[in-house]
């Protein structure tokens, strides 16, 4: 699988998120998973079982780090201690690239532990891009930013979400972790055409893709990662792969986690799209 400079030209295919309930199965059965994505924060500890398990996984699999608390869009300076710990983990895992979310979540050192959406303003573009550059320089590996699911829009926004994403990644010169489920969730919550979003993404910057399931409520959709991927999301994924070419793809399943086999079977549905894209590329 051809890579690009935002995923260190790696050839990662389909992976799944590494989750504790699956440890035993993975160690016992050694399933032929191409790679695992780990949530960085779960392993940014000083010792003990989390790191021991991670080391065991790394004996047999490639891992890629995905963070949830970098908050590129928080208006204040980055937490240096956080960055130092993250870099220590980066050195341990040898992750070829690292991703986190295009969102904010902390103010004055207080953390929400949520992925709060940014207002799509020029001020946010400038500040967020500057922070991404700072993090990328510090970590010395490619960084990809992920579009988040959102449930609120801001009165101050001056552009669409995809315009905002494009402006940020251009200024930061970083990659994109394109989450097609998040695009779908936000398109329902904010009444836009998700295909227009996918078509607007700079394909050459897409380092990785996420697929996942969500929960539907009467008035909005929530990105709960507790269901299989629905057909409209597969359609977005197909279009994204069509535009970007074969791209490292990961299934997220974080709640009501089923057996490993079920999760892996769901993830592998992505393979046919990747193979098709590869064949097109080979012609």
């Amino acid at each position: 699988m051809a890579g690009n400079r935002f995923n260190a030209n790696q050839d990662h295919g389909v992976g799944v998120g590494l989750r504790i309930p699956h440890y035993d199965h993975i160690f016992r059965e050694k399933p032929a998973v191409d790679w695992f994505e780990i949530i960085s924060e779960n392993y940014m500890v000083d010792g003990g079982r989390p790191l021991a398990m991670l080391d065991r996984i790394m004996e047999q699999y490639r891992v890629v780090q995905h963070g949830v608390s970098m908050y590129f869009g928080s208006a204040q300076a980055a937490d240096l201690e956080h960055l130092r710990k993250l870099k220590r983990l980066v050195k341990r895992t040898g992750t070829p690239w690292l991703s986190d979310h295009l969102c904010w979540g902390s103010v004055d050192g207080t953390y929400s532990h949520d992925l709060l959406p940014l207002p799509y303003t020029w001020e946010a573009v400038e500040k967020t891009a500057a922070r991404i550059r700072e993090v990328q320089d510090f970590l010395e590996i490619p960084v990809a930013v992920e579009n988040v699911s959102s449930y609120a829009a801001y009165t101050q926004s001056e552009m669409t979400e995809w315009e905002f994403l494009n402006e940020v990644v251009e200024r930061a010169d970083c990659g994109i972790l394109l989450d097609v489920n998040n695009i779908y969730v936000s398109s329902v919550n904010h009444d836009f055409d998700p295909m227009e979003y996918v078509n607007a993404v700079p394909a050459e910057r897409v380092a990785q893709m996420h697929i996942a399931g969500h929960s539907k409520y009467e008035k909005y959709i929530l990105d709960t990662h507790d269901h299989p991927v629905i057909d409209p999301v597969w359609a977005l994924y197909a279009r994204a792969v069509d535009r970007c070419g074969p791209t490292p793809t990961l299934l997220e399943w974080d709640d009501r986690i089923p057996s490993f086999d079920e999760v892996w079977a769901e993830a592998r549905k992505a393979e046919r799209y990747l193979v098709a894209a590869q064949e097109v590329g080979a012609r």
């Binding site: 208006a75 001020e123 101050q156």
Partner: peptide
Amino acid sequence: MSGMSLETMQRR
């Protein structure tokens, strides 16, 4: 929100 800085909005 017009005129409110990103930092002020986030704090609020």
